[in-house]
């Protein structure tokens, strides 16, 4: 007799987790007023996508690691994005003395 049956963690569990994290990241990007927090939430979304890529790769075709290669590219591009993003935030802060997204109205079309 098996007690405390814990179901096997399948692909769909990982995908549900990744979508929850992605939604939380989107929420942060949309609500956040602090520019740094916006950047962090973008990283959160990218991480959720990486999780989905790796989980799908491990389930569908573990012999070919293309999914993990894509995850490495996502990781690299997100590192570049974060570096440039933080440099822009610092330049804006030096110029205006604020990191509030509401304070930057010069770029309004």
């Amino acid at each position: 007799m098996s007690v405390a049956v814990t179901p096997e963690i399948g692909l769909s569990t990982y995908l549900v987790l990744a979508s929850i994290l992605f939604g939380l990241g989107f929420m942060g990007v949309a609500t956040g007023r602090h520019l740094m927090r916006t950047l962090m939430c973008v990283e959160l979304m990218l991480n959720a996508v990486n999780l989905a890529l790796v989980a799908i790769n491990n389930t569908v075709n573990p012999g070919d690691l293309s999914g993990q290669v894509f995850a490495i590219f996502v990781l690299t591009v997100s590192a570049a994005e974060a570096a440039v993003g933080i440099a822009i935030v610092i330049a804006l802060f030096k110029n205006t003395g604020s990191v509030d997204a509401d304070a930057f109205k010069e770029l309004k079309g």
Binding site: L11, S19, F22, G23, G63
Partner: peptide
């Protein structure tokens, strides 16, 4: 609106993926 749209993105994606079964799984997995 932002919180609501974030929740709905998470909800729709989670609903879609909770019953997701890949169409093709390599036989030698």
């Amino acid at each position: 609106i932002a919180v609501f749209s974030g929740l709905s993105i998470a909800g729709v994606l989670a609903k879609a993926s909770s019953s997701f079964v890949p169409k093709f799984v390599t036989p030698m997995a």
